[in-house]
């Protein structure tokens, strides 16, 4: 990594009561880099992000932002733009009022506040709705406003926690375009998601997190390379999917099998050649398969291979 790191965290650990939510997570993000934290719901992504943003204090570990120790350091928060998972804005205030209020929390002067608000509205293409109340906005517009609020302090590090949840495809596309642009403009971005396609599309590097642990990290190519010649096979079927997965695991060449919604996902060496054996196993298990899809190695296959479970389980 030639560019200087904006975020460096190591050994982050956090428990809630007896439940270990994050277990020794560490990663670095450089200037202009979009880093994806990919994992299923409840994997520990949000807890990790809250620790990075100073909203939760880690039980163990260290966080450094732009070279400054971040834990318990109030001023470092001024370097971070936080976009929470849920839209956190006042529905009964206008777009301008919401952003101006949040900008004032960063001790900005009146003129700077006005300039930053206009700039954030323009970046998120909401300038024409500046005087409308938030409760009149569509879901996608609210999400864009949520992002605009994270840009007001001109952060060095932008933390986006699942910013596209519940958003229509058009708004999602606009948000993803914008995130890629942030990276090009030199901002360090942490992007958490459980959508593999999003991570593949916008992130320069991806960290895969499961059960609170960072189990793999690298560029898409590096991660997929771990699979070697393996393919991902998606079997859509009706009936007992667990039994089908069990039957597939017994097929020689299948390295992992997991059930997802109405389908079973397999990782197998030279998947296309294994299809007859897999269909035979399904037939023997008395399961009728409705469609078969063999996919080139992707992050979903990496996750399946590493954890033995499908990402969207």
């Amino acid at each position: 990594m030639s560019r200087p790191p904006v975020l460096e965290c190591a050994g982050l650990t956090k428990s809630f009561g007896t439940r270990l939510a994050v277990d020794g997570v560490g990663f670095r993000i450089a200037e202009g880099e979009v880093y994806g934290l990919l994992g299923p719901n409840g994997a520990g992504k949000t807890t990790t992000m809250k620790m990075v943003c100073g909203l939760l204090e880690p039980d163990k570990g260290s966080i450094s932002i732009a070279g400054q120790q971040a834990i318990g350091n109030l001023e470092v928060k001024g370097l971070i733009g936080y976009v929470p998972q849920e839209v956190a804005l006042y529905p009964d205030l206008t777009a301008y009022e919401n952003l101006a209020f949040l900008a004032r929390l960063y001790k900005l002067g009146r003129r700077t506040v006005a300039a930053r608000v206009e700039e954030a509205l323009e970046l998120t293409e909401l300038s024409d709705r500046r005087n409308d109340r938030l409760d009149s906005f569509s879901g996608g517009m609210k999400r864009r406003m949520n992002i605009a609020a994270g840009l007001l302090n001109h952060p060095k590090l932008l933390v986006l926690d699942e910013p596209t949840v519940g958003v229509d495809p058009q708004s999602r596309h606009a948000i993803l375009e914008r995130v890629q642009a942030f990276g090009r403009e030199g901002l360090a971005v942490v992007y958490t998601t459980h959508y593999m396609e999003e991570a593949e599309r916008v992130c320069d590097r991806v960290g895969i997190i499961d059960h609170g642990r960072l189990i793999a990290e690298g560029t898409r190519r590096e991660l997929v390379a771990q699979l070697g010649e393996q393919d991902r096979i998606e079997l859509n079927a009706s009936g007992d999917l667990e039994r089908l997965a069990e039957a597939c695991r017994a097929v020689d060449g299948v390295s992992s099998a997991a059930t997802a919604e109405n389908s079973v996902h397999l990782v197998a060496t030279e998947g296309r050649h294994l299809l007859p054996a897999i269909l035979e196993a399904a037939d023997a298990a008395d399961i009728s398969i409705t469609s078969v899809d063999v996919v080139e190695p992707d992050l979903e296959a990496v996750f399946l291979n590493l954890t033995g479970t499908a990402l969207r389980e």
Partner: peptide, 11 residues
């Protein structure tokens, strides 16, 4: 609304 959390993310 998550506003206290958002405010706490600022200094």
């Amino acid at each position: 609304l998550g506003m206290f959390e958002r405010m706490s993310a600022a200094p």
